[in-house]
Design a protein around this nucleic acid. Structure first.
Lengths: 217, 217
DNA sequence: ACCTGAACACCGTTCAAGT
DNA sequence: ACCTGAACACCGTTCAAGT
Protein backbone atom coordinates (compact mmCIF):
# COMPACT_ATOMS: atom_id res chain seq x y z
CA UNK A 1 0.00 0.00 0.00
CA UNK A 2 2.57 2.55 1.06
CA UNK A 3 4.76 1.36 -1.77
CA UNK A 4 2.27 2.68 -4.27
CA UNK A 5 3.10 6.26 -3.39
CA UNK A 6 6.74 5.87 -4.19
CA UNK A 7 6.34 6.87 -7.81
CA UNK A 8 2.71 7.82 -8.30
CA UNK A 9 -0.57 8.22 -6.49
CA UNK A 10 -3.16 5.50 -6.74
CA UNK A 11 -5.46 5.96 -9.68
CA UNK A 12 -8.85 7.47 -8.91
CA UNK A 13 -11.70 8.99 -10.86
CA UNK A 14 -10.73 12.43 -9.56
CA UNK A 15 -7.16 12.12 -10.77
CA UNK A 16 -8.35 10.85 -14.14
CA UNK A 17 -10.81 13.70 -14.58
CA UNK A 18 -8.16 16.23 -13.62
CA UNK A 19 -5.73 14.85 -16.16
CA UNK A 20 -8.49 14.80 -18.78
CA UNK A 21 -9.24 18.47 -18.20
CA UNK A 22 -5.57 19.32 -18.55
CA UNK A 23 -5.41 17.49 -21.90
CA UNK A 24 -8.64 19.09 -23.10
CA UNK A 25 -7.57 22.59 -22.15
CA UNK A 26 -4.22 22.16 -23.80
CA UNK A 27 -5.28 20.57 -27.07
CA UNK A 28 -9.05 20.62 -27.41
CA UNK A 29 -11.46 17.73 -27.66
CA UNK A 30 -9.28 15.76 -30.05
CA UNK A 31 -6.38 15.75 -27.62
CA UNK A 32 -8.27 13.58 -25.15
CA UNK A 33 -7.45 9.99 -26.00
CA UNK A 34 -7.17 7.06 -23.66
CA UNK A 35 -3.62 6.55 -24.81
CA UNK A 36 -2.58 10.12 -24.03
CA UNK A 37 -4.41 9.93 -20.74
CA UNK A 38 -2.70 6.68 -19.80
CA UNK A 39 0.70 8.10 -20.70
CA UNK A 40 0.11 11.18 -18.57
CA UNK A 41 -1.06 9.07 -15.65
CA UNK A 42 1.76 6.58 -16.15
CA UNK A 43 -0.54 3.61 -16.38
CA UNK A 44 -2.12 1.31 -18.95
CA UNK A 45 -4.99 2.50 -21.08
CA UNK A 46 -7.20 -0.27 -19.77
CA UNK A 47 -6.73 0.81 -16.16
CA UNK A 48 -8.80 3.92 -16.78
CA UNK A 49 -11.82 1.76 -17.54
CA UNK A 50 -11.78 0.46 -14.00
CA UNK A 51 -12.72 3.94 -12.75
CA UNK A 52 -14.67 5.35 -15.69
CA UNK A 53 -17.27 3.63 -17.86
CA UNK A 54 -16.27 5.14 -21.20
CA UNK A 55 -15.17 8.32 -22.94
CA UNK A 56 -18.64 9.79 -22.73
CA UNK A 57 -18.69 9.59 -18.95
CA UNK A 58 -15.22 11.05 -18.84
CA UNK A 59 -16.24 14.11 -20.88
CA UNK A 60 -19.38 14.56 -18.82
CA UNK A 61 -17.46 14.35 -15.56
CA UNK A 62 -14.87 16.85 -16.81
CA UNK A 63 -17.63 19.26 -17.81
CA UNK A 64 -19.42 18.90 -14.48
CA UNK A 65 -16.16 19.55 -12.67
CA UNK A 66 -15.47 22.76 -14.56
CA UNK A 67 -19.03 24.08 -14.30
CA UNK A 68 -19.37 23.32 -10.61
CA UNK A 69 -16.24 25.28 -9.83
CA UNK A 70 -17.31 28.24 -11.95
CA UNK A 71 -20.78 28.38 -10.44
CA UNK A 72 -19.39 28.16 -6.92
CA UNK A 73 -17.09 31.10 -7.58
CA UNK A 74 -19.79 33.52 -8.64
CA UNK A 75 -20.08 36.44 -6.25
CA UNK A 76 -23.47 36.94 -4.64
CA UNK A 77 -25.48 39.83 -6.03
CA UNK A 78 -28.37 41.40 -4.18
CA UNK A 79 -30.10 42.71 -7.30
CA UNK A 80 -31.80 39.87 -9.24
CA UNK A 81 -30.89 41.32 -12.62
CA UNK A 82 -27.26 41.71 -11.62
CA UNK A 83 -27.27 38.15 -10.28
CA UNK A 84 -28.51 36.80 -13.62
CA UNK A 85 -25.94 38.82 -15.54
CA UNK A 86 -23.22 37.49 -13.26
CA UNK A 87 -24.20 33.87 -13.92
CA UNK A 88 -24.45 34.52 -17.63
CA UNK A 89 -21.01 36.10 -17.84
CA UNK A 90 -19.47 33.41 -15.68
CA UNK A 91 -20.78 30.70 -17.98
CA UNK A 92 -19.73 32.66 -21.05
CA UNK A 93 -16.19 33.02 -19.77
CA UNK A 94 -16.04 29.43 -18.58
CA UNK A 95 -16.96 28.00 -21.97
CA UNK A 96 -14.63 30.46 -23.63
CA UNK A 97 -11.82 29.14 -21.46
CA UNK A 98 -12.85 25.49 -21.87
CA UNK A 99 -14.47 25.38 -25.32
CA UNK A 100 -14.58 21.58 -25.33
CA UNK A 101 -17.24 21.82 -22.60
CA UNK A 102 -19.67 23.68 -24.85
CA UNK A 103 -21.05 20.84 -26.92
CA UNK A 104 -20.98 18.58 -23.88
CA UNK A 105 -23.12 20.89 -21.80
CA UNK A 106 -26.30 20.47 -23.73
CA UNK A 107 -25.75 16.84 -24.49
CA UNK A 108 -26.74 15.46 -21.12
CA UNK A 109 -28.96 18.02 -19.43
CA UNK A 110 -29.98 15.71 -16.65
CA UNK A 111 -26.47 15.71 -15.28
CA UNK A 112 -25.53 17.50 -12.12
CA UNK A 113 -24.32 20.74 -13.68
CA UNK A 114 -27.68 21.52 -15.26
CA UNK A 115 -29.69 21.95 -12.04
CA UNK A 116 -26.86 24.14 -10.74
CA UNK A 117 -27.20 26.52 -13.67
CA UNK A 118 -30.99 26.51 -13.62
CA UNK A 119 -31.00 27.29 -9.91
CA UNK A 120 -28.66 30.24 -10.31
CA UNK A 121 -30.85 31.69 -13.04
CA UNK A 122 -34.24 30.71 -11.62
CA UNK A 123 -33.80 31.90 -8.03
CA UNK A 124 -33.38 35.57 -9.05
CA UNK A 125 -36.48 35.26 -11.22
CA UNK A 126 -38.42 34.09 -8.18
CA UNK A 127 -37.12 37.15 -6.37
CA UNK A 128 -38.58 39.23 -9.21
CA UNK A 129 -41.97 37.75 -8.39
CA UNK A 130 -42.37 35.26 -11.24
CA UNK A 131 -44.31 32.08 -10.58
CA UNK A 132 -45.72 29.03 -12.33
CA UNK A 133 -45.30 28.41 -16.03
CA UNK A 134 -43.96 31.88 -16.70
CA UNK A 135 -41.21 31.36 -14.15
CA UNK A 136 -40.11 28.08 -15.69
CA UNK A 137 -40.33 29.25 -19.29
CA UNK A 138 -38.41 32.45 -18.55
CA UNK A 139 -35.65 30.55 -16.77
CA UNK A 140 -35.53 28.08 -19.59
CA UNK A 141 -35.20 30.82 -22.22
CA UNK A 142 -32.34 32.41 -20.31
CA UNK A 143 -30.48 29.15 -19.72
CA UNK A 144 -30.84 28.05 -23.32
CA UNK A 145 -29.70 31.43 -24.56
CA UNK A 146 -26.70 31.42 -22.25
CA UNK A 147 -25.54 27.93 -23.17
CA UNK A 148 -26.36 28.39 -26.84
CA UNK A 149 -24.46 31.62 -27.31
CA UNK A 150 -21.58 30.54 -25.14
CA UNK A 151 -21.26 27.30 -27.05
CA UNK A 152 -21.43 28.97 -30.43
CA UNK A 153 -18.96 31.62 -29.43
CA UNK A 154 -16.53 29.03 -28.15
CA UNK A 155 -16.72 27.11 -31.41
CA UNK A 156 -16.19 30.09 -33.69
CA UNK A 157 -12.59 31.18 -33.65
CA UNK A 158 -11.10 27.73 -33.40
CA UNK A 159 -11.90 26.47 -36.85
CA UNK A 160 -10.40 29.55 -38.44
CA UNK A 161 -7.03 29.08 -40.05
CA UNK A 162 -4.42 29.21 -37.35
CA UNK A 163 -2.22 31.93 -38.74
CA UNK A 164 -4.82 34.65 -39.20
CA UNK A 165 -5.84 36.45 -36.08
CA UNK A 166 -9.37 37.12 -35.04
CA UNK A 167 -9.63 40.55 -36.60
CA UNK A 168 -8.32 39.52 -39.98
CA UNK A 169 -10.67 36.58 -39.93
CA UNK A 170 -13.74 38.68 -39.12
CA UNK A 171 -12.74 41.15 -41.81
CA UNK A 172 -12.55 38.31 -44.28
CA UNK A 173 -16.02 37.01 -43.38
CA UNK A 174 -17.42 40.54 -43.53
CA UNK A 175 -15.92 41.04 -46.98
CA UNK A 176 -17.56 37.84 -48.17
CA UNK A 177 -20.92 38.90 -46.81
CA UNK A 178 -20.59 42.31 -48.40
CA UNK A 179 -20.35 40.65 -51.77
CA UNK A 180 -23.80 39.10 -51.48
CA UNK A 181 -26.50 40.60 -53.65
CA UNK A 182 -27.83 43.72 -51.85
CA UNK A 183 -31.28 43.06 -53.30
CA UNK A 184 -31.52 39.56 -51.89
CA UNK A 185 -29.57 40.30 -48.69
CA UNK A 186 -30.37 43.86 -47.61
CA UNK A 187 -29.84 43.15 -43.92
CA UNK A 188 -26.60 41.22 -44.27
CA UNK A 189 -25.23 43.72 -46.72
CA UNK A 190 -25.97 46.59 -44.40
CA UNK A 191 -24.66 45.08 -41.16
CA UNK A 192 -21.63 43.18 -42.41
CA UNK A 193 -19.26 46.01 -41.63
CA UNK A 194 -20.45 46.35 -38.05
CA UNK A 195 -20.22 42.59 -37.70
CA UNK A 196 -16.50 42.96 -38.28
CA UNK A 197 -15.75 44.85 -35.10
CA UNK A 198 -18.44 43.69 -32.74
CA UNK A 199 -17.68 42.63 -29.18
CA UNK A 200 -18.92 39.09 -28.54
CA UNK A 201 -19.22 39.59 -24.82
CA UNK A 202 -21.10 42.88 -25.07
CA UNK A 203 -23.40 41.43 -27.71
CA UNK A 204 -24.05 38.47 -25.45
CA UNK A 205 -24.98 40.74 -22.53
CA UNK A 206 -27.23 42.79 -24.80
CA UNK A 207 -29.21 39.62 -25.51
CA UNK A 208 -29.50 38.87 -21.80
CA UNK A 209 -30.87 42.35 -21.24
CA UNK A 210 -33.34 41.92 -24.09
CA UNK A 211 -34.74 38.79 -22.48
CA UNK A 212 -34.79 40.41 -19.05
CA UNK A 213 -36.65 43.37 -20.54
CA UNK A 214 -39.18 41.01 -22.05
CA UNK A 215 -39.58 39.17 -18.76
CA UNK A 216 -40.14 42.24 -16.60
CA UNK A 217 -42.03 44.39 -19.04
CA UNK B 1 -19.28 8.48 -71.52
CA UNK B 2 -22.67 6.95 -72.20
CA UNK B 3 -21.41 3.68 -70.84
CA UNK B 4 -21.10 5.19 -67.43
CA UNK B 5 -24.86 5.36 -66.98
CA UNK B 6 -25.36 1.68 -67.48
CA UNK B 7 -25.10 0.80 -63.82
CA UNK B 8 -24.71 4.07 -61.94
CA UNK B 9 -24.59 7.81 -62.43
CA UNK B 10 -21.24 9.52 -62.51
CA UNK B 11 -20.09 10.58 -59.06
CA UNK B 12 -20.60 14.23 -58.21
CA UNK B 13 -20.53 16.35 -55.10
CA UNK B 14 -24.30 16.65 -55.20
CA UNK B 15 -24.81 12.91 -55.30
CA UNK B 16 -22.33 12.45 -52.47
CA UNK B 17 -24.00 15.08 -50.29
CA UNK B 18 -27.40 13.54 -50.93
CA UNK B 19 -26.19 10.11 -49.93
CA UNK B 20 -24.52 11.59 -46.85
CA UNK B 21 -27.78 13.22 -45.76
CA UNK B 22 -29.60 9.92 -46.17
CA UNK B 23 -27.04 8.17 -43.96
CA UNK B 24 -27.11 10.95 -41.38
CA UNK B 25 -30.91 11.02 -41.18
CA UNK B 26 -31.09 7.26 -40.87
CA UNK B 27 -28.38 6.68 -38.29
CA UNK B 28 -27.15 9.96 -36.88
CA UNK B 29 -23.69 11.49 -37.07
CA UNK B 30 -21.91 8.23 -36.33
CA UNK B 31 -23.52 6.53 -39.31
CA UNK B 32 -21.67 8.75 -41.76
CA UNK B 33 -18.42 6.99 -42.62
CA UNK B 34 -16.54 7.04 -45.85
CA UNK B 35 -16.86 3.30 -46.07
CA UNK B 36 -20.64 3.33 -45.68
CA UNK B 37 -20.85 6.20 -48.13
CA UNK B 38 -18.70 4.40 -50.68
CA UNK B 39 -20.81 1.25 -50.34
CA UNK B 40 -24.03 3.17 -50.88
CA UNK B 41 -22.58 4.95 -53.91
CA UNK B 42 -21.07 1.72 -55.22
CA UNK B 43 -17.59 3.14 -55.47
CA UNK B 44 -14.30 3.12 -53.63
CA UNK B 45 -13.84 5.15 -50.49
CA UNK B 46 -11.01 7.10 -52.07
CA UNK B 47 -13.17 8.27 -54.97
CA UNK B 48 -15.14 10.51 -52.63
CA UNK B 49 -12.03 12.52 -51.91
CA UNK B 50 -11.89 13.56 -55.53
CA UNK B 51 -15.10 15.57 -55.04
CA UNK B 52 -14.91 16.49 -51.37
CA UNK B 53 -11.92 17.69 -49.36
CA UNK B 54 -12.65 15.81 -46.15
CA UNK B 55 -15.36 14.79 -43.71
CA UNK B 56 -15.65 18.28 -42.35
CA UNK B 57 -16.55 19.74 -45.73
CA UNK B 58 -18.99 16.93 -46.28
CA UNK B 59 -20.84 17.66 -43.05
CA UNK B 60 -20.86 21.38 -43.78
CA UNK B 61 -22.22 20.84 -47.28
CA UNK B 62 -24.93 18.52 -45.98
CA UNK B 63 -25.95 21.11 -43.40
CA UNK B 64 -26.03 23.91 -45.96
CA UNK B 65 -28.15 21.78 -48.24
CA UNK B 66 -30.74 21.07 -45.55
CA UNK B 67 -30.88 24.63 -44.26
CA UNK B 68 -31.14 26.20 -47.71
CA UNK B 69 -34.14 24.04 -48.54
CA UNK B 70 -35.87 24.79 -45.25
CA UNK B 71 -35.32 28.52 -45.54
CA UNK B 72 -36.58 28.58 -49.11
CA UNK B 73 -39.78 26.81 -48.08
CA UNK B 74 -40.79 29.33 -45.44
CA UNK B 75 -44.03 31.09 -46.34
CA UNK B 76 -43.83 34.86 -46.58
CA UNK B 77 -45.43 36.73 -43.70
CA UNK B 78 -46.45 40.36 -43.89
CA UNK B 79 -46.19 40.97 -40.16
CA UNK B 80 -42.53 41.20 -39.05
CA UNK B 81 -43.16 39.40 -35.78
CA UNK B 82 -44.96 36.58 -37.57
CA UNK B 83 -42.13 36.39 -40.07
CA UNK B 84 -39.56 35.95 -37.30
CA UNK B 85 -41.66 33.33 -35.58
CA UNK B 86 -41.96 31.46 -38.88
CA UNK B 87 -38.19 31.37 -39.39
CA UNK B 88 -37.64 30.32 -35.80
CA UNK B 89 -40.11 27.46 -36.00
CA UNK B 90 -38.78 26.34 -39.38
CA UNK B 91 -35.26 26.12 -38.00
CA UNK B 92 -36.49 24.40 -34.85
CA UNK B 93 -38.30 21.75 -36.86
CA UNK B 94 -35.43 21.37 -39.32
CA UNK B 95 -32.88 20.64 -36.61
CA UNK B 96 -35.37 18.38 -34.88
CA UNK B 97 -35.69 16.40 -38.11
CA UNK B 98 -31.94 16.46 -38.83
CA UNK B 99 -30.35 16.61 -35.37
CA UNK B 100 -26.87 15.96 -36.76
CA UNK B 101 -27.02 19.45 -38.32
CA UNK B 102 -27.30 21.17 -34.94
CA UNK B 103 -23.67 21.06 -33.79
CA UNK B 104 -22.54 21.70 -37.34
CA UNK B 105 -24.54 24.88 -37.70
CA UNK B 106 -22.61 26.93 -35.24
CA UNK B 107 -19.28 25.43 -36.12
CA UNK B 108 -18.67 27.33 -39.33
CA UNK B 109 -20.75 30.48 -39.21
CA UNK B 110 -19.12 31.99 -42.24
CA UNK B 111 -20.66 29.34 -44.44
CA UNK B 112 -23.50 30.04 -46.82
CA UNK B 113 -26.35 28.98 -44.55
CA UNK B 114 -25.54 31.56 -41.91
CA UNK B 115 -26.20 34.69 -44.00
CA UNK B 116 -29.46 33.06 -45.12
CA UNK B 117 -30.67 32.72 -41.56
CA UNK B 118 -29.46 36.17 -40.53
CA UNK B 119 -31.22 37.74 -43.48
CA UNK B 120 -34.52 36.05 -42.67
CA UNK B 121 -34.35 37.29 -39.10
CA UNK B 122 -32.80 40.70 -39.74
CA UNK B 123 -35.04 41.90 -42.56
CA UNK B 124 -38.20 41.87 -40.41
CA UNK B 125 -36.30 43.77 -37.72
CA UNK B 126 -35.50 46.45 -40.28
CA UNK B 127 -39.21 46.57 -41.08
CA UNK B 128 -39.80 47.21 -37.39
CA UNK B 129 -37.62 50.29 -37.68
CA UNK B 130 -34.43 49.08 -35.99
CA UNK B 131 -31.12 50.44 -37.23
CA UNK B 132 -27.42 50.45 -36.46
CA UNK B 133 -25.93 48.55 -33.57
CA UNK B 134 -29.29 47.79 -32.02
CA UNK B 135 -30.43 46.15 -35.26
CA UNK B 136 -27.38 43.93 -35.47
CA UNK B 137 -27.34 43.00 -31.80
CA UNK B 138 -31.05 42.18 -31.79
CA UNK B 139 -30.73 39.98 -34.86
CA UNK B 140 -27.72 38.31 -33.35
CA UNK B 141 -29.55 37.56 -30.11
CA UNK B 142 -32.45 36.03 -31.99
CA UNK B 143 -30.27 33.92 -34.28
CA UNK B 144 -28.13 32.67 -31.43
CA UNK B 145 -31.18 31.84 -29.38
CA UNK B 146 -32.81 29.99 -32.28
CA UNK B 147 -29.76 27.92 -33.11
CA UNK B 148 -28.87 27.34 -29.49
CA UNK B 149 -32.26 26.10 -28.39
CA UNK B 150 -32.84 24.09 -31.53
CA UNK B 151 -29.46 22.42 -31.16
CA UNK B 152 -29.94 21.64 -27.52
CA UNK B 153 -33.41 20.32 -28.08
CA UNK B 154 -32.23 18.09 -30.88
CA UNK B 155 -29.48 16.65 -28.70
CA UNK B 156 -31.68 15.89 -25.71
CA UNK B 157 -33.83 12.87 -26.34
CA UNK B 158 -31.29 10.95 -28.35
CA UNK B 159 -28.91 10.10 -25.57
CA UNK B 160 -31.67 8.74 -23.41
CA UNK B 161 -31.85 4.97 -23.14
CA UNK B 162 -33.63 3.68 -26.21
CA UNK B 163 -36.36 1.69 -24.54
CA UNK B 164 -37.87 4.41 -22.37
CA UNK B 165 -40.09 6.87 -24.15
CA UNK B 166 -39.83 10.60 -23.79
CA UNK B 167 -42.40 10.92 -21.03
CA UNK B 168 -40.90 8.25 -18.85
CA UNK B 169 -37.52 9.83 -19.34
CA UNK B 170 -38.68 13.31 -18.37
CA UNK B 171 -40.46 11.87 -15.35
CA UNK B 172 -37.22 10.21 -14.31
CA UNK B 173 -35.22 13.44 -14.60
CA UNK B 174 -37.92 15.33 -12.74
CA UNK B 175 -37.85 12.77 -9.94
CA UNK B 176 -34.09 13.19 -9.65
CA UNK B 177 -34.37 16.95 -9.48
CA UNK B 178 -37.12 16.69 -6.86
CA UNK B 179 -34.70 14.87 -4.60
CA UNK B 180 -32.29 17.79 -4.47
CA UNK B 181 -32.16 19.71 -1.22
CA UNK B 182 -35.08 22.21 -1.23
CA UNK B 183 -32.97 24.65 0.78
CA UNK B 184 -30.15 24.72 -1.74
CA UNK B 185 -32.35 24.31 -4.81
CA UNK B 186 -35.62 26.15 -4.19
CA UNK B 187 -36.22 26.92 -7.85
CA UNK B 188 -35.39 23.49 -9.21
CA UNK B 189 -37.38 21.81 -6.47
CA UNK B 190 -40.41 23.94 -7.22
CA UNK B 191 -40.40 23.68 -11.02
CA UNK B 192 -39.27 20.07 -11.51
CA UNK B 193 -42.83 18.79 -11.79
CA UNK B 194 -43.78 21.30 -14.48
CA UNK B 195 -40.57 20.48 -16.30
CA UNK B 196 -41.91 16.97 -16.68
CA UNK B 197 -44.75 17.88 -19.00
CA UNK B 198 -43.52 20.99 -20.75
CA UNK B 199 -43.82 21.44 -24.50
CA UNK B 200 -40.42 22.10 -26.06
CA UNK B 201 -41.85 23.89 -29.05
CA UNK B 202 -44.15 26.14 -27.04
CA UNK B 203 -41.34 26.94 -24.62
CA UNK B 204 -39.11 27.79 -27.54
CA UNK B 205 -41.68 30.18 -28.98
CA UNK B 206 -42.18 31.77 -25.58
CA UNK B 207 -38.49 32.66 -25.58
CA UNK B 208 -38.77 34.18 -29.05
CA UNK B 209 -41.66 36.31 -27.82
CA UNK B 210 -39.65 37.38 -24.75
CA UNK B 211 -36.85 38.63 -26.97
CA UNK B 212 -39.27 40.30 -29.36
CA UNK B 213 -40.93 42.00 -26.41
CA UNK B 214 -37.56 43.24 -25.25
CA UNK B 215 -36.71 44.49 -28.71
CA UNK B 216 -39.92 46.40 -29.28
CA UNK B 217 -40.55 47.65 -25.78
C1' DA C 1 -9.44 -5.07 -5.95
C1' DC C 2 -6.80 -2.94 -9.16
C1' DC C 3 -3.57 -2.61 -12.99
C1' DT C 4 -1.03 -4.02 -17.57
C1' DG C 5 -0.71 -3.89 -22.38
C1' DA C 6 -1.51 -6.62 -26.40
C1' DA C 7 -5.38 -7.45 -29.44
C1' DC C 8 -9.69 -6.32 -31.88
C1' DA C 9 -12.75 -3.79 -34.66
C1' DC C 10 -13.18 0.36 -36.70
C1' DC C 11 -12.11 4.97 -38.28
C1' DG C 12 -10.29 9.13 -41.81
C1' DT C 13 -7.10 9.74 -45.18
C1' DT C 14 -3.47 8.73 -48.65
C1' DC C 15 -1.68 6.95 -52.78
C1' DA C 16 0.14 3.86 -56.34
C1' DA C 17 -2.18 1.79 -59.81
C1' DG C 18 -5.70 1.48 -63.09
C1' DT C 19 -9.21 3.33 -66.96
C1' DA D 1 -9.88 13.38 -65.40
C1' DC D 2 -11.74 10.23 -62.52
C1' DC D 3 -11.99 5.94 -59.98
C1' DT D 4 -10.17 1.63 -57.22
C1' DG D 5 -9.04 -0.46 -53.03
C1' DA D 6 -5.16 -1.78 -50.28
C1' DA D 7 -2.31 0.41 -46.82
C1' DC D 8 -1.27 3.57 -43.00
C1' DA D 9 -1.84 5.76 -38.72
C1' DC D 10 -4.83 6.20 -35.25
C1' DC D 11 -8.90 5.51 -32.41
C1' DG D 12 -12.20 3.36 -28.23
C1' DT D 13 -12.79 -0.67 -25.94
C1' DT D 14 -12.02 -5.47 -24.31
C1' DC D 15 -9.81 -9.00 -21.85
C1' DA D 16 -6.56 -12.60 -20.44
C1' DA D 17 -2.97 -12.20 -17.49
C1' DG D 18 -0.65 -10.33 -13.74
C1' DT D 19 -0.11 -8.27 -8.60
Amino acid sequence: MAARNQRSEALSKDRIVEAAIALLDAGGAQALTFRALAARLETGSGAIYWHVADKNELLAAATDHVVARVIADIADEADPRAAIRAVALAMFDAIDAHPWAGPQLFREPWRSSMPLIFERVGAPLMALGLTGRRLLDSASALVHYILGVAGQNAANPRLAPQDVDREAFLAHVAAQWMQLDPEAYPFVHQTALQMRDHDDRAQFLFGIDLILAGITR
